[in-house]
Amino acid sequence: MPSSPSAPQVSDRFPGPRREDCPWCGSARLRTRLRGPRAVALDECGACAHAFQNPRPAGDAPAPSGRSHRATARALAGLADPESWLDVGTGHGHFPQAAREFFPYTSFDGLDPTARVERALAEGRVEEAHRGLLTTPGVTDRLRARYDVVSLLHHLAHVPDPRAELRAALTVLRPGGHLVVESPAPDSAYAALLGPHWLPHRHAHLLPLPNLEAELSALGCTVTTTARVHQPQDLTETFPRPFHAPLRAATALDRLLTPLTRRTRFANTYRLVARKPGRF
């Protein structure tokens, strides 16, 4: 059942106050990672290396392309015949639509803080639509232990409290179920090369992979897979849309370099699959 239109939205659509501690570990050992144009003001925690926009600006960044949705679904095809799957931050439901090719017997639901999820339901991309975040009051109670797989694809980078959202994802997952996380890799060589023009530097949070692994381990989960993957967008996103010729050239170069990039430090994304303790 869709929630009310006042459901909380993703955090980097709305400005927030400056904070003096890390949103991941609470340490006050903050340092400047970068300052730049487009309201980029990124701090990094000296204790856990979590990076975040401080203060949080208004604005949002584009979602991954449909091409990357299909690549992600193909990479997850080894998951054993899940009956139910919740895609968190699903937007228009393009990932569930792509994943059906590899999981034809799986029921896909979508959760998103915007009305896009309702359009995904109307167009048949998801079977149930839920408005809000996992941390929205009442959501985890309604969906508790309901899903065999929960995917957080480029979602944790945009929520007010990524650690709480991660824990809530485990609440709606059945014992023995799988959690799938994709997130920008803050140690990508493109981050240093492009600085404030690197697309993920416009996100609310950059979560180091070791932090997620440690958190999931502390919660009793087993990390079964980690991988560096690449989305061909880094050079493309450095050019404003009116510059058509250099934009087309950058897009072509991004795609050309992807096969060479995905297994190097230039890879801009990591994927993690973890198993919740217990049995179905």
Rank of each mutant, 00 (worst) to 15 (best):
Q233A: 14
P37C: 06
R18T: 15
T106A: 13
A120M: 03
P17Y: 11
A129I: 01
D21W: 11
H178K: 07
P210V: 02
G78Y: 06
L209G: 05
A73E: 05
V126L: 01
P37F: 06
H178W: 01
G59M: 04
S151R: 06
S4Y: 14
A49W: 05
F108R: 01
A115Y: 07
V159E: 01
T136A: 08
A129D: 03
A47N: 04
A39N: 15
V180G: 07
W198E: 05
P184W: 09
P2A: 11
R146M: 08
P64Y: 11
E123R: 10
H158Y: 09
R275S: 09
R38I: 12
A191K: 00
V181S: 03
T136V: 13
R125W: 00
G66Q: 13
G26A: 06
Y105W: 14
D109V: 05
N268F: 05
M1Q: 13
T72N: 11
L143H: 08
P162K: 09
L206D: 00
R248H: 09
H230S: 09
P240Q: 12
E83N: 03
L253Q: 00
A63P: 05
S217C: 09
R271F: 00
V180P: 01
P200H: 11
T238N: 04
L193R: 12
T32V: 13
M1Y: 12
A169L: 05
P232D: 12
H155M: 07
V126S: 01
R279L: 11
R228M: 03
L199C: 04
H205S: 10
E20A: 15
L86I: 03
H94A: 15
S151W: 05
A185N: 15
F52L: 02
T171S: 13
L86W: 04
G176L: 13
G26W: 07
A120Y: 02
E127C: 11
T251V: 07
A122G: 12
Q97T: 12
A145C: 10
D254E: 11
P184R: 10
R19M: 10
A214E: 10
S188A: 12
R70K: 10
R241C: 00
N211E: 14
P160R: 07
V172K: 02
T269G: 01
P5C: 03
A61L: 15
R100V: 04
N54Y: 01
E128H: 11
E83Q: 10
A28V: 11
H92N: 13
A189F: 10
R174G: 02
P242K: 06
S183L: 14
G36K: 02
R142K: 13
C45Y: 03
P208Q: 05
T261R: 07
H230C: 07
R56W: 04
S3E: 09
V181W: 03
P259I: 08
A122R: 11
F14N: 01
L216A: 08
F103S: 00
T261V: 15
E101W: 07
E237Q: 14
R119N: 07
V117W: 00
R265L: 09
P200G: 09
P64E: 06
P175M: 07
S6I: 10
K276Q: 06
T269W: 00
D21E: 13
S151Y: 05
L212D: 06
R241F: 13
T106K: 09
V88L: 03
R275L: 12
L207I: 15
G278N: 09
P96G: 08
R74F: 14
P113Y: 01
H94M: 15
P17K: 12
T222G: 08
G177L: 06
P242V: 04
G176V: 14
